[in-house]
Amino acid sequence: MSKDERGRATRRGQPFLEEPEAKPFWASLREHKLTAQRCASCQKIFGFPPQSHCPHCLSNEFKWVELSGKGTIYSHIAYHRAWHPAYQDKVPYNVSLVDLDEGGRLVTNVVGLPPEQVKIGMKVEVIFEDTADFTLPKFQPAK
């Protein structure tokens, strides 16, 4: 395990693609589809992270459904300090909480504009950022 200057474990900074409940989420993202679990009993979207039983009614029956990818910014911040070496040359960068239209919220990045132009209440839409091993959902102002 690598450690930082205070002897603390350094952060992974990566998604955990093998998390059993979340595997379909990460697999769909590879096909540029943003998905979520819809409860077969109460019909509500589970939210994130994915889990085995509905957080609204505890049913364990659900379907993975594709979302519209549209949402609204609940809050946003700008990291001016890099907590991970990979972000050293990216500061300042935006991190946002995006509430998806169908339900559920993601910690994500709103990209395509400077952090100071991101606003609470702004309508956004998903874009997909591919890396060698995984695809991350990020957001841009809705067209």
Binding site: Q14, K90, T108, N109, F134
Partner: peptide, 9 residues
Amino acid sequence: HWEEPWGHF
């Protein structure tokens, strides 16, 4: 792992 991939640490 639901925060750090987007740089929230």
